[in-house]
Amino acid sequence: MSKTISIHSFRGGTGKSNTTANLSVMLARKGFRVAIVDTDIQSPGVHVLFGFDEEQITHSLNDYLWGKSEIDKAAYDVTDRILGENAEGTGRLFLVPASIKSGEIGRVLKDGYDVGLLNDGFRTLIQKLDLDYLMIDTHPGVNEETLLSIIISDMLILVLRPDSQDFQGTSVTLELARRLEVEKIGLIVNKIPPGMDRVRLKQKVEASYDAKVVAMLPLNNEIVHLASSAIFVDRFPEHPFTQELEFALLAVME
């Protein structure tokens, strides 16, 4: 049976899309069939990590939501692009990008869309692509689409930075997720600055939220230098960041 994982954060800039992309690549490398859906329609970004530009995206999630095409038409097989010969046999990775055309983004902001349709789309993807994992890269904050994505997920991963605004905002998101009876919640603390005591930080986060921290990711200069031009775990397989992300992967696969 497939699993749906929502990766969310209270604010933008937490590294949510990067986390989604890297975890998805790691899953595909392990031989799973994985799809990422970029539901951050207002500020799409995950496509960049897979080397897509506007011209290469001929079909997007937006087309599906406006009834212009089937959702699987917008699922790009990026396995060869990312994994090359590293995939273990059956592993495949698909990406359903959101449109990066400003008119399309404006339309979503103006008209919204039917969240039920989004859920139907997820189901179609799982069936047609025979997925093991559907990874939903959500829009930051709290809105209807996000809450729906969260509630239909088997696991919610909340990404936060160790700063006071994220700390407060995440507590609200987490409480709402609990009221929505999300089955499993994992926290990823990202962009931990040098000098911060990781052990104490982990204890503090877990105690404050009564939730499990599944990875503690350091502020990562190399990821900044990559400037979203590649998937980090592919470029730096031995890096401490990659190794720490393995813990999150284990939690996802649990």
Binding site: V142, P162, D163, S164, F167, Q168, S171, V172, E175, L176, R179, P193, P194, G195, M196, D197, R200, L201, K204, V205, S208
Partner: peptide, 24 residues
Amino acid sequence: TDTVTLEFLTIDQKRKNEEVSRIA
């Protein structure tokens, strides 16, 4: 490494409850 205080990481429970109630 040298440790930085984590005191600034606090949850204002009253504010949190207000925000959660407003939405939920």
